[in-house]
Nucleic acid binder design. Structure first.
Lengths: 129, 129, 129, 129
DNA sequence: GTGGTCTAGACCACT
DNA sequence: GTGGTCTAGACCACT
């Protein structure tokens, strides 16, 4: 079962963070078609946010065709998001973790790392738009 | 001179994106004390956003002590954000770029990469909260 | 400017009625790309419903790609729904109005007419599914 | 025996759709006093909905005095809803079907037709409110 | 119990 | 002023 978390102070609205986390989990193969998301009320209780906020996230997922709420039953994953095969992904991930460890060892803090990552990611992206 | 950009649809308010970009540039050593930021009008015109939005970002930077507006002259960087020495950073950056290139070559798209990066970054962070 | 109305007691949720009315107006050529919908607050005030309910309808239209909210400006039609040319539609409409008048003259009330219409419409539809 | 159907995605709750269908059938003379409705179980099985939903519809019909459940026997129509004599209704219906056929032939799809019909019906109604 | 709709009202971002 | 997010809480439909 996916474990949601919400970070305040990022400027990203909480409902949006939940949507992003489900999308990420689908891409990484941590969630699959048919999986059940935690109930609206449970997420609201655990993250100490309003049930309507969770509902909004789930409705957004529904609009994207990724999940579907079934009253009385729960909310279920309807469609996956293709990514690489698990093995290839695991390899890339291991390499990235090595890089991260090196960066921390070199004395960077996570804000600095985030800044570096964001910059590099952005510089590679524009060509895709 | 820093080149701002605004991505709509991310949920992050534009003024906040501008602030974040200045902070990142400071951390990476792309902006230094005394540097002048582009004028409010110029940013507004180039990004096609309201001048008040830019003004809000610059005011936020003032509140953080990072920049200072001098009427008639422009807005200037007041304080830097320490990061690693340029050389060490360049090395880490080169490694990260290599990783990125590998990921793209393996067939990942930028959303997939963003998902992987976000996940790995988050897993290393919790200890800081 | 479209004139919304909400009928209670039909079982159709109000936000849904608003969405349906916009779609109908688009099909009939009463609304066009670029047209501005009445503001959330105005609709809420006139229909004596909550602004959030109107907002929900507008968001639904946005998800369907039919409208787009622009903070500070209003909500605008983004895409039309093709229908017949106005003239052909006007002709069909005139014929339908004649039929309706005949039905009323024969002594049917609007519930009876609605029942007849719903039944006939349903019997012609199934083949399309 | 009446043939129920439930359309999802219309916003109208299923139990309400069942009630409406019985009322329509009564108005059109397709159901008469003493007729037996299909059993709750049968309807639930055929429409793949929960028996409680069907039960709720039947109870609603009882409240309206239109039907009456007789334990062990079934649910029976108690009262009709007056409409026009069958012949007059058949004539009106034939005319409406001709109109419908013309509309389809002209190239309208059922959503377009539904939009036109709803609009015309509403414009004739206001005087009743 | 589970998702869905709605209200009332606060507060924010953008024009 | 205009749309957008969130909270708190009531009530409904479905399982």
């Amino acid at each position: 079962m996916i474990e949601f978390r919400v970070e305040v102070g990022t400027g990203v609205p909480p409902y949006r963070q939940l949507v992003d986390q489900v999308e990420r989990a689908l891409r990484l193969g941590h969630l699959h078609v048919g999986d059940r998301l935690p109930t609206v009320k449970e997420v609201a209780r655990r993250l100490v946010i309003n049930p309507n906020t969770v509902l909004k996230a789930y409705r957004e997922l529904e609009h994207k065709g990724l999940a579907k709420g079934r009253p009385g039953l729960g909310t279920f994953i309807e469609r996956g998001l293709d990514g690489l095969p698990a093995e290839q992904q695991a390899e890339l991930r291991a390499d990235l973790e090595k890089w991260l460890a090196t960066a921390y060892r070199a004395g960077m803090d996570s804000d600095g790392i985030a800044a570096l990552v964001a910059t590099v990611l952005h510089e590679f992206r524009p060509e895709e738009n």
